[in-house]
Design a protein around this nucleic acid. Sequence first.
DNA 1: GCCGTTTTCGGCCCGACTGTTTTCAGTCG
Length: 574
Amino acid sequence: MAQNADIAQVFEEIADLLELRGENPFRIRAYRNAARTISNQSRDLATLALSDKALPKLPGIGADLEDKIREAAKLGTCALLERLRRQFPPGLPMLLRLPGLGPKRVKTLYDSLKVASLDDLRNAAEAQKVRSLPGFGERTETRILEAVLAGLAQSQRFRLNVARQYADGLVAHLKSVAGVTQVCVAGSFRRMRDTVGDLDVLVSARSGAKVMDRFCAYESVREVLSKGTTRSSVRLANGLQVDLRLVAPESWGAALHYFTGSKAHNIAIRRLGQERGLKINEYGVFKGARRIAGESEVSVYAALGLPYIAPELREDRGEIAAARAGRLPALIERQALRGDLHVHTKASDGRNSILEMAQAAKAAGLEYIAITDHSPSLRIARGLDSGRLSRQLDEIDRLNAQDPGIAILKGAEVDILEDGRLDCPERLLARLDVVVGAVHSRFDLPRARQTERILRAMDNRNFMILAHPTARLIGTRQGIEVDLEKVIRKAAERRCILELNAQPERLDLEDHWCQDAKSSGVMLSIDSDAHSTLDFEFLDYGIGQARRGWLEPADVLNARAWPEARALLRAIRS
DNA sequence: GCCGTTTTCGGCCCGACTGTTTTCAGTCG
């Protein structure tokens, strides 16, 4: 059965092929917007479409696209796409992914040289046949060849924590340039997306500062892609592209807004401005030739009659309507977290002792942590059998008696076995303050069985928190096939908690599912899943994803003091 | 292809940089 992502892919491919045909750009945009809207949906559109229920009214999707969603849900494709595919060789859309190649040039390459694949393109460029085409030249040919050889067609994204390492170094470098007054990394990095495609850096400086020269001379720069007076692009040694924009102080807010995006949010904001007779660009908000705002982001939003919208919300997922209605969420912040309910020690696959983890958690500003080592079926992590777990619980009693300055709670991360049973005897589960259940095996089960497995586990009266619900590892492993709508419904019914795992390679639940859980009245727990004393830093990433999911402190279990959280967890058992 | 207190047509966000041109198209963000 088609997933939302598959339907979105159909629309993306239609858009690519329409571009190659040189169709109306607004029609093409309609397909791309629809693809984005669909992949942002939590609701499983294919199931809805196949059950003949009315599809929800989605912005930018009218009668025609709704029909195509139904077609794609049923067939994984649609008549229009099949018709378009017959007009071009299958490898052609891939060429659009190469930097410097858009629809016009790809069409020219195909029409003039019969270039229909990356291989064809490489051969043509190596034979120097590309340079003589209209609109091409020697430089263009060289760059295309370089891109093909570098295999850049499949654009790679970097995990947020990886990007942050490079961002920190670069920001420090730019701040050291004489005359620089402000530096900020904008883009998806600032919106706290779980991965970023590039870094968008904004700099404000006194005139005459040698910002561009120093930027392009940064030690990690492998290649300068473009260099201008206000804008330059480079690629770092690790392949990460960095765009730098130099802005005047009076335009700082407008530029920050523009460069933070998302693109969809910007377009919606500009359209709103247009309705009010305002022009919005990266230099400011203009009424005619007069600038009326732009020195700060607050001033940009205020010019439109809106309150400030946090970067994490700027995805055109309803934040502008919420702002207009005065219903923006009061987003959770890192300081609101009072506990961490998923922490490992060296008893299983962690690196530090219980006491060391407790002290690190206390230093990170937390009031309580649950020690949740693995259960025995996870052999590779030296999961604790009944005897070892029992002794660990006694040790926690002893540590708490010595008043460590932080409450240490008894817990376990218990495997959900293939049949939905929990990998721990009931009498031990009953002794725990916190029972975290998780899938660590049989990731390959078909959707229905995987879902059934998890729902069954959640029916256990001792089951409290579902850890990393999809088990995805960003860039490494797809999540399991599971019907999260059913899981959320079950959590609502059983008053169970869903985890937002803060490990930067997990960040699972994803933002839009957090939003769904919240609207179903399900609480989340933002946990580090720390395996060492350094890992409490992960909570920052968890908070980022939570904010993207519109979560407020009231939606988060561990934003409560332990007695209150304990009462909520105990209620699950009764 | 969508959309509508300018509603069924005619709009649809906006600007920088590059390379190939000799004033601009294509691409990108």
